[in-house]
Simulated assay, not measured.
Amino acid sequence: MDSIIFDLDGTLWDPLDVVTEAWNSVLAKHEEQLLSRDDIKGVMGLQHQEIGDKLFPHFSEEKHREVADQFSEVECRRLSNEGGRLYEGVEAVLDKLSEKYDLYIVSNCQEGYIESFYKYHGLDKHFLDFENAGRTGLSKGENIKLVMERNNLSNPVYVGDTTGDQQAAKAAGVPFVYAQYGFGEVDEFDHVISEFEELLALFD
């Protein structure tokens, strides 16, 4: 193994409290029903169109684009200023892992989201590259392949917390480490961790 590629939400941090408040501030302006933390937890890891289809099936295509753009702007601004909740030990574990492995992030988020994570928590020093669906329009599996190709990775693993992450790792042909503490339930995986710090023993 030469590298580790991470999912973001439900793997490195839990941003749900801030994201819920951000989205609801937008929905209130549109006089739409507000969402719960569990509503948003249920769509974490999906691309924006999939989120719209699941949470707002009554929106026109034009309104969905308008609201999604507003979600993105408010969400990234607030996360840049307030951050999310890092899982226990994330910074110390990344520091140790980066001594031995090249680290990357691949997420289904919009442009600016990973940058917001970096800005508030200052963890960009640990990662050599990142990619997201908002920038490329590609699936997560394709974005994993893209990061592998442009960084000449021959033997990475992918760490994530949802079935979508497992399927993306499979599509990219890389082993999958299931972060069981995150947002999803996954039945198929190569390795499983119940807390982030277990990565140190797994990759020792």
Rank of each mutant, 00 (worst) to 15 (best):
M1E: 09
D2F: 08
S3E: 08
I4V: 14
I5G: 11
F6G: 02
L8T: 00
G10S: 11
T11D: 11
D14N: 09
P15R: 09
D17I: 15
T20D: 09
T20A: 12
E21K: 15
W23I: 04
S25F: 01
V26L: 02
L27Q: 05
L27G: 08
A28Q: 13
E31D: 13
E32N: 07
R37P: 01
K41Q: 15
G42Q: 14
V43G: 00
L46C: 03
L46A: 02
Q47R: 09
Q47V: 08
H48A: 14
E50Y: 08
G52K: 13
D53K: 12
D53W: 08
P57F: 14
H58I: 14
S60T: 12
S60E: 12
R65E: 14
V67A: 03
A68K: 01
Q70R: 10
F71T: 13
S72T: 10
L79K: 11
S80G: 14
E82W: 13
E88C: 01
G89N: 05
V93Y: 03
L97T: 01
S98Y: 01
S98H: 01
E99L: 10
E99P: 03
E99D: 05
Y101D: 07
Y101E: 08
D102H: 11
L103A: 04
L103Q: 01
Y104S: 14
I105N: 06
I105F: 04
V106M: 08
V106A: 12
C109Q: 02
C109E: 03
Q110N: 13
Q110K: 12
Q110I: 13
Q110D: 12
E111V: 00
Y113S: 06
F117C: 07
F117Y: 09
Y118M: 04
K119D: 00
H121F: 06
G122S: 14
K125L: 05
L128G: 14
D129L: 08
D129I: 12
F130T: 02
F130R: 08
E131S: 15
A133C: 07
T136A: 05
T136S: 13
L138I: 09
L138K: 13
S139Q: 08
E142L: 10
E142A: 14
I144M: 09
V147H: 06
M148S: 00
E149C: 07
N152T: 15
P156C: 10
V157A: 10
V157N: 12
V157W: 11
V159D: 05
D161P: 14
D161G: 11
T162Y: 08
G164I: 02
G164D: 06
D165W: 00
D165T: 00
Q167T: 10
A168F: 02
A169M: 00
V174F: 10
V174G: 09
V174M: 11
P175K: 15
V177S: 06
V177D: 02
Q180S: 09
Q180C: 04
G184W: 11
E185W: 03
E185F: 04
E188F: 04
F189E: 02
F189N: 04
D190G: 10
V192T: 03
V192Q: 05
I193Q: 02
L200I: 00
A201E: 12
A201M: 06
L202E: 01
F203I: 02
D204E: 12
